[in-house]
Nucleic acid binder design. Structure first.
Lengths: 150, 150
DNA sequence: CCGATATAAATGCAGTTGCATCTATATAGA
DNA sequence: TCTATATAGATGCAACTGCATTTATATCGG
């Protein structure tokens, strides 16, 4: 009986896809206009900043960001080339490495957040009450895969 | 005062981006697994099917699908190469053309919908009640740009 | 009617993504 | 221990995207 989607499901799907694409594009444009790198960079810098001095293994970044493996590999190469992250050999696993954010990386993250955060505030925060935002988050949470208890 | 996003706004944004990406990827994978073309093809075929025999001008497709102009141009070239749409010179505007879906295009759309619709039913329809779906649609509707009255 | 500007659509080129594969190391099992 | 398999990460190549520009036609102002 999950064969054919109900009209309500189709509408919610369509809006979800359309709105998310639209808002994402707006946020990307804001960064671009400010001469800053794309959002993917922010996502990685954010995770690495949260991780602290210990850094993260690339495969951990993949889990957290949902980016594809090859994508992370190349993204890290670009971030390293720009001096925003550094790669460290890890002692107990010769295959891998640990990636750590640099001071320059933290600075870039800060500058990106100034723009990105403003986009979020404008595009979402200014349009729904806190209560509605909570409702939205809860509903979206139930669509996550794999489904996790709220 | 829309400077800094509230925690509720950040959370809603993060979920929106993450969930939409995840669900989109799932739907794309389902099509790929079935040996069918990507969702973008469906979007165009859908619009053209709705438009009927009169077809649509490429710029109308751009408005409806939110794809970039160059993207539509190339997508239509691929669809035409596969015989799914046909391009017709339009009498009263020598710059443009009208694009019409072919029988083969309708057939492809039908086959894609069999898979895509099932994805929507499973990923969204089976996870939220009709009532929650309506709520979700309404909240997302308020995030559209430009904002339109519900 | 004519030149300037605007709109429709296509395209060359550079950068990015996706796929498949490859290299290197680690772990498991005989 | 030695081989087989699994995991971490990088990469060659083809397809796709984004940007800027180009071509062609239409419209507007004088």
């Amino acid at each position: 009986m999950t064969e054919n989607p109900s009209p309500a499901a189709i509408k919610a799907w369509a809006r979800l896809m359309r709105v998310s694409r639209q808002l994402l594009e707006r946020a990307e444009d804001a960064l671009k206009d400010a001469g800053l790198p794309p959002l993917a960079w922010y996502d990685v810098l954010h995770e690495l900043a949260e991780a602290g001095e210990g850094g993260l293994r690339p495969f951990q970044l993949i889990e957290r960001t949902l980016f594809a493996q090859y994508n992370v590999s190349r993204l890290l190469a670009r971030l390293e080339a720009d001096g925003l992250v550094e790669k460290l050999r890890v002692a107990d696993d010769g295959r891998g490495q640990t990636v750590r954010i640099t001071g320059k990386g933290r600075e870039m993250r800060r500058r990106m957040w100034a723009v990105y955060g403003r986009s979020i505030a404008e595009l979402v925060g200014a349009r729904l009450s806190n209560n509605d935002l909570e409702t939205l988050s809860a509903l979206l949470g139930r669509l996550r895969h794999p489904a996790m208890p709220e």
